[in-house]
């Protein structure tokens, strides 16, 4: 009990490496990323570290971002599509502090986008990297809890169990009852968990211009989808994969064919729907698009249904 106890109030902050992780850890993660890119959809085991935020709160994504980020990068962090949710704010602040990088909420300005549960509505471009936070990377885990077994199934490309499960859904419910974390097949080989994004976002993974990296910290797995890679949602001829559709446009910006959050307005059943992607919604509003709640405006409103991606 010496110095530390005596001047605990005036302790110098511990010094950390650029982007928090030590270089040896970054090297280990970088090697895993390269293997992940070389074998698209295969989950590469990596020696995930304890991070200064809890497991399950994006430690995998944070480690991947920390391993790739450089001082010239511009970072965007979203949670549920929004830049201003508390966990997104917290992770963005972490990198602003430990790596001193510029941050942004504008999708086109970002070089690295770390995400939880959504893919931005604005199409990603070449040179961008989308980093997913993944809770359970194993798409077969809820069919077979044992790692030793699921590893064999991937090795043998034995995915019958997954099809049986999806078909049982149809038999019981008339629908495939998976609405998020909907399994995909990558480049005709590996069945992969897209992280708990709504299946609405699955088509955006297919032939994306951006590199997609997935980090699961607690489960110690990294995987990747290179740009221009075939990503197909599993389905059946008589029950083709389809995404969610919303009956009404965004109440704020009038966008259609985007993913909407339901907002409860009162205790009398009042509901409205607004964009889950906050940047997409704000830039549409800045461009003069108005949804029902904000009143109509010239060129938008009534014909909002005809509006498509207005950006770029």
């Amino acid at each position: 009990m010496n110095a530390l106890a005596q001047d605990e109030g005036s302790q110098n902050l511990a010094t950390y490496n650029f982007a928090y992780l030590d270089e040896q850890t970054k090297r280990m993660i970088r090697r895993a990323i390269l293997k992940g890119i070389a074998v698209p959809g295969y989950q590469v085991p990596f020696a995930s570290r304890e991070m200064p935020m809890p497991y399950g709160w994006g430690t995998g994504g944070v480690q991947v971002t920390a391993a790739i980020i450089g001082p010239d990068d511009v970072l965007k962090v979203i949670d549920q599509g929004a830049d201003d949710t508390t966990n997104a704010v917290s992770i963005r602040a972490f990198f602003a502090k430990t790596a001193g990088v510029a941050t942004t909420t504008a999708t086109p300005d970002a070089t690295i986008i770390q995400t939880r549960h959504r893919i931005p509505e604005t199409p990603l471009t070449q040179g961008q990297v989308l980093v997913y936070q993944v809770p359970i990377p194993e798409p077969l885990r809820f069919l077979e809890p044992r790692e030793t077994e699921t590893r064999k199934m991937h090795a043998l490309e034995e995915y019958g169990l997954m099809h049986v499960k999806l078909y049982e859904d149809i038999a019981r419910n008339g629908h495939i009852a998976t609405t998020y974390a909907y399994p995909v097949k990558v480049e005709g080989r590996y069945v992969m968990d897209p992280s708990p994004t709504p299946k609405f976002d699955n088509p955006k993974m297919h032939q994306s211009e951006a590199l997609q990296l997935f980090g699961a910290g607690r489960e110690k797995r990294i995987y990747a989808i290179p740009p221009h890679t075939e990503v197909v949602s599993l389905d059946f001829e008589d029950h083709p994969f389809e995404i969610q559709h919303f009956d009404q446009p965004c109440a704020m910006c009038g966008a259609v064919e985007v993913y909407l959050d339901e907002v409860v307005l009162d205790d009398k059943g009042g509901r409205m729907f607004v964009c889950s992607d906050t940047h997409h919604c704000e830039s549409r509003q800045a461009d003069g698009h108005r949804g029902a709640l904000l009143g109509e405006s010239p060129g938008a409103g009534d014909d909002a249904g005809a509006e498509k991606e207005a950006i770029r």
């Binding site: 490496n17 650029f18 270089e23 970054k26 090297r27 970088r30 990323i33 390269l34 890119i37 070389a38 391993a67 790739i68 980020i69 450089g70 001082p71 040179g127 590199l211 990747a224 290179p226 740009p227």
Partner: peptide, 19 residues
């Protein structure tokens, strides 16, 4: 500059591997 150099080299390699 091990931290900066290895990051720049890695990003070039990652892009090469991804494309």
């Amino acid at each position: 500059d091990p931290v900066g150099a290895s990051q720049v080299v890695f990003r070039a390699l990652m892009d090469a591997m991804a494309r």
